[in-house]
Amino acid sequence: MRVIDGMHRLLAALLRGRQTIEVELFDGTPEEAYLHAVKANVVHGLPLSQVDRRAAAARIIESHPHMSDRAIARASGLGAKTVAAIRRSSADAVPQLNTRVGRDGRVRPLNALEGRRRVVAVLAEHPDASLREVARLSGVSPATVSDVRRRLAAGESPLPSGTEPTELPGTERGGDGTQRAGSDSRSNQTFMDPVPVMEKLLRDPSLRHKEGGRQLLHLLRQNAVGVQDLMELSDAVPPHCRSLVINLAQHYRDAWQSFAEALDDSV
């Protein structure tokens, strides 16, 4: 009978003299209840302070070491890089696992090299399999499969350049460790985590105190999604809507590109 979420609503009901209140029962361990409580308090009510969020993330890392940095970041309201730093500082108290569970519930290897090695093996065994089927069999994202398949088709190493050399079955020497995405000339681009960038912009008074600045922050906040997150959202697009979504995505891409070029020209 411990309240996980809704302390203030319960207190308000008591002050009004109510004898009962409608509740949603939670069935789980104390650690799961704590995770649920943190998630709830991040998205509504009085925002948690940065200290509270970091403390929450540290506790979740200890109780749920299998959760990915992005999953814990989303639960605690921090950036993935901040969570990764907290995890590193807690390395002695946290068991070291070979896989983690992402926000989509999928289990992925910590070592991206191992994931790409499995993609190469699966593609060799099932060359006609779809991206999603290879991703399912390999335990990686469809974006990684797409990148590996493109590199192999071009006669390149399936590993991004500039990483530590390691032998892969049927490939030249290479290495992995940097998150890459895409299937064109931009596939060698390293994508940043937008969350800490947005946190910095949201704290800037020169943006927050202007109408135009607030509008820009609103737009940027709506678009603050990582490449990996977009790849996961591709599952939600039904076949009959794909062409429409593709056209919109390309339109938004061109609009933001023009905006970036205009800013660059004004420097």
Rank of each mutant, 00 (worst) to 15 (best):
R2N: 07
V3G: 00
M7N: 07
M7D: 11
H8E: 12
L11K: 11
L11M: 12
A13I: 09
L14P: 02
R16W: 04
L25P: 01
D27T: 11
D27P: 00
P30E: 02
L35K: 12
V38W: 01
S49F: 03
R53F: 08
R54F: 10
A56H: 13
I60M: 05
D69M: 02
D69N: 15
D69C: 05
A71W: 02
A71H: 15
A73G: 14
R74P: 00
R74A: 08
L78S: 02
A84F: 05
A84P: 03
A84W: 10
S90W: 03
A91V: 13
D92S: 14
L97G: 02
T99K: 09
R100A: 08
R103S: 11
R106D: 01
V122A: 03
L123D: 01
E125P: 01
H126F: 12
L131P: 03
R132P: 01
S138H: 01
S138W: 00
G139L: 00
A143F: 01
V148L: 02
R151L: 05
A154C: 05
L168W: 04
G170C: 09
G170T: 06
G170H: 10
T171W: 00
D176F: 03
G177F: 00
Q179L: 10
G182I: 09
R186H: 13
S187Q: 14
N188H: 14
T190D: 13
T190Q: 15
F191M: 06
M192K: 05
M192P: 09
P194K: 11
V197L: 11
P205I: 10
R208I: 07
H209P: 00
E211C: 09
R214C: 08
L216P: 03
L216H: 03
Q222M: 08
V225S: 14
V227K: 01
A236F: 06
V237L: 09
H240S: 10
I246N: 13
N247M: 09
L248Y: 14
L248S: 08
Q257F: 06
E261H: 12
V267H: 15
V267I: 09
